[in-house]
Amino acid sequence: MDVHVQGGPAEPFLGARDVFETEQDLERRVTVRVREDPDERTRVSHDAESHLLTISRQAATSAMARELALHEFAHMARYEQGHPSHTQSTEEAIYLALAGRSVERRKLSHCYQIANHMKDIYADDVWLGVAPADKLVTFLESQLATAIADVPHDPPAGQRLTPTSDPDITAVNAAFALALVERHDLVEDDHPMYDLARVAADDAPHVGLSTFKRHFATLARDTDESTYRKALVDVTREYATAQRGEQAAD
């Protein structure tokens, strides 16, 4: 693997390269550009000869830097493999799922996030086989706890100047986290993440946490374009049609 780092620490990315190439490889050159913008944690683009990873300095210097690099290398590998999760048009599948339906902007944005979760499942299938997952589990637990703590439970006394977590997508994120750790046998049944997920499910009972966990956990490992498109359409439609005040089928 040919990895070049610009504007930041090279060690996390070169260390990730050394781990990744014990079982995987990338044919195209990888350029890592570290940027000051903390709001853009990671972004990957591709051309015919290379991959470009843009990452914030905050992420590049965090305790999760090596794991983030491994995750993004795995996305690059899936792209080079022509994996359906990374070649299927997300827009096409979402609009197919939502044809003839009126969907609020908030939910449409969440549908794209759900599609990214599905890509992440397939990327994580690659790198979790070559490196320990302890930091990933801690990260998922921390992110879920933070989101749940930020979900508004009472009418605000005044105007809030910072955004709150949306309970609907928080429940889906909890489903994704559980699906990922169960898919790779990363935690025991009594892990605190399960308690957090129950709270998230209670905050959005109409979403159906176990339904979405099943969608993510059972994604076929050897999928084809048609099967993947159907899975993406199904999960998108499931989320978009869930109505507040109505319990989703579990």
Rank of each mutant, 00 (worst) to 15 (best):
D39I: 07
Q143T: 15
V130F: 01
N116S: 15
A77E: 15
P156H: 10
S89W: 03
P155A: 05
I94S: 00
A93P: 01
E49G: 15
A149Y: 04
P167R: 03
E40S: 14
R57W: 13
H117S: 05
E104F: 05
A60S: 11
V44H: 08
N116G: 15
P156M: 08
Y122H: 13
Y112D: 03
P152N: 06
D168P: 08
F176Q: 10
D168L: 06
A177T: 11
A69Y: 00
S85G: 09
P156Q: 08
T90S: 11
L53M: 06
P38I: 03
S56F: 01
A63D: 10
A175H: 08
T54N: 10
P167W: 01
L140G: 00
E49F: 14
Y95M: 14
E91T: 12
D120T: 11
D154S: 15
R105L: 12
G129V: 07
H86V: 00
Q159V: 10
Q58S: 14
L108W: 04
R106A: 08
A59V: 08
N116A: 12
I148K: 01
G158T: 14
Q143K: 10
E67A: 12
E91N: 10
D120G: 07
A97R: 00
A149W: 04
H75K: 10
L68I: 07
L128E: 00
Y79S: 13
L128F: 05
H71R: 09
M118N: 02
F176W: 13
A59F: 07
L140T: 00
S56R: 03
R105D: 11
P152S: 04
P84S: 10
A123H: 02
P163W: 09
A48K: 13
R105E: 11
A133P: 01
E67D: 15
N173L: 04
P132H: 07
P132K: 08
A131N: 03
D39Y: 11
I94D: 00
H75I: 02
E92L: 09
K107T: 06
A149M: 05
P152C: 04
T87G: 06
A60K: 02
S109D: 13
E141G: 01
A157H: 12
Q58W: 09
H46E: 11
P152A: 04
L140H: 00
I121K: 06
T164Q: 10
V172T: 06
D166R: 02
L136S: 01
K119D: 06
G100E: 11
K107C: 01
E92T: 09
A174H: 06
R160M: 11
V103M: 03
L53A: 02
D154M: 13
R78H: 06
G82H: 05
N173K: 15
E80V: 02
Q159E: 14
A145H: 07
R41I: 13
R78A: 06
D125S: 09
P155R: 05
D150E: 09
P156E: 07
A69M: 03
A157K: 11
R160Y: 12
F139E: 04
H110S: 03
L128K: 00
A97S: 02
L96S: 09
R160Q: 14
V137D: 01
A77L: 15
D134M: 04
